[in-house]
Design a protein around this nucleic acid. Structure first.
Lengths: 222, 222
DNA sequence: CCCGTGTTGATTGTTCAACAATAGCCCCGA
DNA sequence: TCGGGGCTATTGTTGAACAATCAACACGGG
């Protein structure tokens, strides 16, 4: 078979498969609303149906696919309400985490790493990697709150949001403007001006929401 | 076999099994840290190992059980850090939801129903049902925010907290004092004094945290 | 032409049996 | 007491089989 293609794996195969499908999803390899056939996918991935079903259950729990009984699993097709809701949650969570953050929290280093990574990838015009780095930046902001459960929840809604990104073609316009804004937020925060950093972040999120919503509406028009 | 015991079921068997185990967990039928053998449970529930594994994966995602590769699934044993974290999240989420709530939101009716139910069960001294009703009350508070994703996340951490309740014997002391406090919060909110209602809720949560933590420490001492 | 209605094919839901892989345990020897 | 080697029970994964359900289509009556 082709199992060894994904290294030795230290964890269960079901999780490995779920991670593989998750990557395919955020890379836009499937179109939203598309049905994922069990037999086709388990043949393509070289795993059995039972294992694939476990992976499906994981992804369904994360909201990346939706499961309809006796019909199959479908790539979640985000609607405008979901986008609005997710941005509302992001403002709620990120701003609070940043405003109450301990200035020398270890996650600040992660924020710096993510900003540098995004900048480097941006010069290579690798917009997919820029998006990943930006996600890591905002994940690091939430990590400031020191709540593993909140981290997991946030990672989940961010992955779902990224599914919506896959709908759009202008990856550059979608990610490029924010690498500098991220850096600005970080440096303002490092200058101990937390209040200003939060204001910047809030403005960042509002702008991002506008762009994403506009692109989404342009998408459904076609 | 014994499948029809749980009515006709409209959804998949895996979910039904997960719901059954979930109920057993919050009712305290298992002791935290206990290992749940696959063969023993699937024989007891009359389902196959694959189906039980799907249920396990669901519960592991919810944090009610933890899965250790090649060792099995164990009932999550909450520690003090988890209790503190969950109460921090509750204050974060519930207070915000209540403070920004639309006064005539449909979820207010759910809050009223939960308060009445808790009162009725309390007179019957059915403390397990009182706990369920109290959980429904706080779930309704979060529902004020109109965010399905937040609702799901909150339900999850509340279920995890309830796992900690299972550790303690004094169910009455754990639930009874709060049915009146819940009613007070609701009536203050209905009187359009949102600020006071939030203050009451915050005080409620702080007191509950103290009681649960104290009981938890008494528990580990034995 | 339109509309129920059965029939059929495909897909999912669930079970079962088998084997591989691993962790924990017991026993042994130094 | 400690470390090593195998034994056993349990989990991880597979493949096949059958039941249940859905979607599409053909058919016949109005």
């Amino acid at each position: 078979m082709k199992k060894q293609a994904l290294e030795d794996r230290r964890e269960s195969l079901g999780n490995t498969v779920a991670a593989g499908i998750r990557r395919l999803l955020v890379e836009g390899a499937f179109t939203p609303g598309q049905r994922l056939s069990e037999v086709a996918l388990c043949e393509r991935l070289g795993v059995s149906r039972n294992t694939l079903r476990e992976a499906f259950r994981t992804l369904a729990h994360e909201g990346l696919v939706t499961h309809q009984p006796h019909r199959g699993v479908f790539v979640t097709s985000p609607d405008a309400a979901s986008i609005v809701e997710i941005y509302r949650l992001r403002r709620f969570i990120e701003c609070r985490a940043l405003s109450e953050a301990w200035p020398s929290h270890p996650a600040v280093r992660e924020m710096r790493v993510a900003v540098d990574e995004a900048h480097a990838r941006s010069e290579q015009q690798d917009w997919l990697a820029v998006g990943t780095a930006n996600m890591a930046f905002h994940g690091a902001i939430v990590a400031l709150a020191d709540s593993p459960r909140l981290n997991g929840f946030f990672r989940q809604i961010l992955a779902e949001l990224r599914l919506a990104f896959g709908l759009m073609s202008d990856k550059e316009w979608l990610h490029a403007p924010y690498v500098d804004m991220n850096r600005q937020v970080l440096e303002t925060f490092e200058a101990s001006d937390t209040k200003a950093a939060v204001a910047l972040l809030e403005q960042y999120l509002a702008q991002s929401e506008r762009v994403v919503l506009a692109a989404w509406e342009r998408q459904v028009a076609t």
